[in-house]
Design a protein around this nucleic acid. Structure first.
Lengths: 340, 340
DNA sequence: ATTATAATTGTGTACGTTAACGCTTGCTAT
DNA sequence: ATAGCAAGCGTTAACGTACACAATTATAAT
């Protein structure tokens, strides 16, 4: 069934059918109704291939992402996923324009966002990690659609979002910590960025799990604005003050650093260490046994899915109706660590 | 850069360029060389959209899969993934033709496979679970490409395969079993289909893990050809004979049945139960605590990926060069069980 | 030299859709 | 009555590729 068939059946020209299909007006009510009925009854589906060929439209996707090669390579993993998805659809007229922002510089997020908008992007994929500025970027977008990865923003309406339920991830980590140390009565939870919502939620999930259990959770926060060289001294004092802690939960990605320090100081009775993300350092820690468990946010898939869904919605006009699940909480131990 | 541009640059017509592009001969050596150089230098990429429009080719994918609604719904999960992928590409001229076979009927695999071939499929996606017949099907395919899901076949050359490393999965399960029962000295491994290669490998991985540890593994096999109603009596005797078993490893998907029986018989000191696949029954067992851990083969993703890769290679002519990883070993506990 | 034949190369149409453009018809305002 | 105008509809030229067919040129046979 193609437009010409509909036209023939309706006794009109393809131009008229086209106007009805695209709601371009200039068609009488009766004709429109007749054509719409035929379209409905025949189950006509537009040939997206021909459509794209004719329109010859190209979609430019803006990517707003924290500085690559920072934070242990976490964002690079997302970016790899983005590139994998792009590679799969090179055949289609789609391109990306990337801006890396520095989340520690006030206003940088907004600035880079506006740069992208000025570039004339058709859709924006963003990690809304600087909340207040992210809202401003969205406001500036006007009618340009946007998608989230890594995290979300209340009250926003992205075309898709790919992120993990942080609270549940913390809760899950707590369960594992509990199982690995059934008799323990004390664990440490050490956050490195006080402001990040994700990390707060993970810490909360972890703490809440133990609420009804007779277990002491020591919640600590190390502000990333502090001088880096002071960290180890700080951490050593944490170790000294909590000799009875059976495990350390690190809601952010700096797990290996902490794990190796613990190994150094407490080689005899190494506590359980649970952290996040399959960064190279963390994978090494897992392989060498100083980290017991890592929870992966599947950043590669987040990037990949984001692009795929943008592609589906913008180029193929397929808007997903079904509620999608969030990224699963991926439990990684030495034995199921993916190779490479 | 399009064919017309190449033609203009080479001073020939597009027909000649076309012949060079498709190796249809009838072009002089010099002309061919000149055109090939231009193609190479310009980085020309054919417009797959226009190509498909012209060719108007439709790909029919044959699906050879065990009876749906059998084996606890495992194959239905794969089929769901297949359908999800198909839904994403409805815009493209691609269709499926499914044949369900009964793996317990000798010759049925081959028969259903031949039916598909006679249907005139362009590519076959198959679960090569009946090895000898699968080889015959492949031989009958002649030059039709094929893809594997769930399992593989030595010496075959599928365009893609999506499966989990069974040995590694068993090994991983063993590690978890060990961690959950650090002081135990005996575990039971109970297989339900003696012939399935996958299950053998899982059992082997599990057993091998404990080889150097002073742990006793009781390896049992219940042949599925036995009368079903005898199973519980058999299993009760297993329980009685191994009162000191700290855990049960079930390499196949009938985990919940076993777990609930154990609960009935040994409610006071319930052993650890580790099994496979997120079937409804198993998920229930996990939620209710009779199953400790399930390993997921991500069947949904297997089906999804298989179709996607067929689509990429057959319709977009994008043949993946990079070695792909096998399906990850997905560790599922109550706390990270996906909803729904 | 002239055909016959083979080896090259060029031309034209179609794939289904889009959208600019133009044609008709009927109406309003002068 | 007639120009002006808008509503409604039809026509047509692309988009880039594939392939059948026509046309040309080179080579061989007489």
């Amino acid at each position: 069934m193609k437009i010409a068939d509909i036209a023939k059946e309706a006794g009109v020209s393809i131009g008229t059918v086209d106007r009805v299909l695209h709601n371009r007006g200039r068609v009488s009510k009766e004709t429109k109704a007749k054509i719409e009925k035929i379209i409905k009854d025949s189950g006509y589906k537009p040939n997206i291939i021909a459509s794209n060929l004719k329109k010859n439209k190209s979609i430019k996707i803006g990517i707003l992402i924290p500085k690559l090669s920072s934070e242990g390579g976490y964002w690079d993993m997302i970016y790899n996923g983005i590139n994998r998805a792009m590679a799969e659809i090179t055949q289609f007229p789609i391109s990306t324009e990337t801006r890396e922002f520095d989340r520690t510089i006030r206003g940088d997020y907004l600035e880079k966002g506006k740069e992208l908008i000025n570039e004339g992007i058709d859709v924006l994929a963003m990690a809304p990690v600087v909340q207040s500025e992210a809202y401003q970027v969205i406001a500036s977008l006007k009618d340009i659609p946007y998608a989230f990865f890594d995290s979300s923003l209340p009250e926003a309406h992205p075309i898709t979002e790919n992120l993990q339920n942080s609270y549940k991830a913390g809760w899950c980590a707590a369960k594992i910590m509990n199982v690995l140390n059934p008799d323990a009565s004390k664990f440490v939870c050490l956050q490195m960025h006080s402001t990040a919502y994700n990390l707060q939620q993970r810490a909360k999930g972890f703490t809440d799990y133990f609420e009804t259990k007779n277990v002491d959770i020591v919640n600590l926060v190390w502000d990333y604005k502090n001088k880096k060289e002071l960290f180890l001294a700080f951490f050593d004092s944490v170790i000294n003050e909590n000799p009875d802690a059976a495990g350390y939960f690190i809601p952010n990605d700096a797990t290996s650093k902490i794990a190796y320090r613990l190994k150094e100081k407490l080689s005899d009775k190494m506590p359980t260490v649970i952290g996040f993300d399959l960064l190279e350092d963390n994978k090494k820690g897992l392989r060498e046994g100083v980290i017991s468990v890592l929870i992966s946010q599947q950043p590669e898939n987040q990037g990949y899915n984001t692009i795929r869904e943008i592609f589906q919605s913008q180029l193929l006009n397929q808007h997903n109706t079904t509620q999608k699940e969030s990224i699963p909480i991926d439990i990684i131990i030495k034995e199921n660590l993916p190779e490479g």
